[in-house]
Nucleic acid binder design. Sequence first.
RNA 1: GGCCCCGUCGUCUAGCCUGGUCCAGGACACCACCCUUUCACGGUGGGGACAUGGGUUCGAAUCCCAUCGGGGUCACCA
Length: 558
Amino acid sequence: MSNAVTRFAPSPTGHLHIGGARTALFCWAFAKKLGGRFMIRIEDTDQARSSEASARGILEDLAWLGLEWDDGPALDWHNRTIGGQSRDVGSYYQSKRLPIYNKVVDDMIERGIAYADFTPESELKALRAAAQAANQTFRFHPPADKILSVPHQRERIAKGEPHVVRFRAREEAVSVVDQVLGEVSFSASEVDDFVLRKADGFPTYHFGVVVDDEHMGVTHVLRGQEHLMNTPKHVALQKALGYRTPMYAHMPLIFNDAGAKMSKRERDQTARKAMKDRNITASPVPEIIDNASFSAWLGDTKRQLETGQLEALAAQQSLALPEVSVDDFRRAGYLPGVICNFIALLGWNPGENIEKFDMDFLAKNFNVERIGKSNARFDRKKLLSFNADAIAKLSDEQFLSELRAWAATHAPAELNAFLAGPSATLLAKTFRPRTKTLRDIIAATRFLFTADASYPFDRAAVDKNLLANSNAGLDHLRRMAADFAQLTDAAWTVERLSAYFEEVVAAHKLANAGVLAQPLRVALTGTTVSPGIAETLVLLGRQRSIIRIQRCLLECKG
RNA sequence: GGCCCCGUCGUCUAGCCUGGUCCAGGACACCACCCUUUCACGGUGGGGACAUGGGUUCGAAUCCCAUCGGGGUCACCA
């Protein structure tokens, strides 16, 4: 046991990003390895963007991934509770910790290491613009004589004048020993008089983090490299407040295909580009996205649609959107263990050419020494391969249960009904080796759920497999139809039908069973692609199979 | 632009700290062949990298310097 405490501190402004998931994973693994505690804190200090629904969604994403927290908000998850108040450190929601921050702020003002600043925002903007025009970096760091006396500050605060409270930065360089990057030095000018408390009374990110990490006993901060330049601010604050400085480890970023930080905006960008390429200017799904919002979104590259809207648009347009959030991957039918395995590899590896591992392995073997320094591109093809491998390693029973759990919320009713029926086991056994993500099942089983009278026959498939060589395929079909009519439902099994094909091949000296299978496949599914032909027949059932063959015989004449 | 980080096959990486065992190993992707009842799976094989230029050294992917390239960050967002 150790007293190490790591924390993952998301801001609830959307779904859990895959990069955030990796941060959480590493924090979790680090705590587990050391026998310490893993904590979740919700950084909901942006009143406009934060939502309780999003916080809940993120907690569910974490729980689904298997990243259970020792301390943090309570979440009911599959008949038990994760988290809850287990240490006496107050709320894990920053928005509920305002008195704590205010006490620290008041104290800092009194000590002269923070001050109320009444500069209007418009003025700040102008200063910033001027600095940029002069090709200089804007730093807010007024000389001491420009800062109001403490009583004067108090007086104006008491009058209710709008203001922020700023840190009074000392002019000194800060050096941080990062566990991944080594010693990193920042010059004094990197830390200016940044805001601690916003005009709305909420703490800024920098202030909330520093105060809470101290009060919550956080010992190790593992976070993305995008936070590296925040570190001198945090360390300067810690020093000013007499806090301990936790161990820092900044991990490399996760990149998209374009070689930039992976972001949630990519899905909108992909969809927007497709709309422009296809010259679509009006909403293709007007009942979900009205035309005004659609064109506003189309014209503004910063605008984002809601998840449901984006999904509807993508579905209607047959667009494949890149998965970015944990929820995207979950809906796409990836296994949580695979996601964790894969993202762990983006920045960390156990050495010795080991690539596939589970959560137990991570909890036992994780270490910061093996976190890499360079950014990693997120290769969806490799992830897909990992997922397919993991599914291949599942037993049929495990696969079926994973599939049922996923389908319950992500698949159409017909598939769920089938998965509850007598042929569910056969379906699982049949499709498991051809499944890369659980969602593949939907497309692969579509032929089962279209009406016997309405699935289309692919012209080229009919020509090649039924009509070629003077209707050779149709002749086979006719004979099989007659034979099938003789069979009983009890004989309608994979074993019996496989034997039947062998018998026919031998009796008629056919080249191979494909001569029979392909015409049948076209008759049963309208296409040349399906699982093994015996399995296809059994999945469909004797009656439907015969109906389909008859229909094909009627409709697919030369 | 300032500051900071990074730079091994197309991609993720092992090796780098503690130079020689590396004409650089693995994985995904790609290509070819095999298997085959279509698709998928599976099997075998193949092409493919130390960013560049200088040093140091008997010897450098490994140490040093420079250049180039990529990224991050510069809010009353987090």
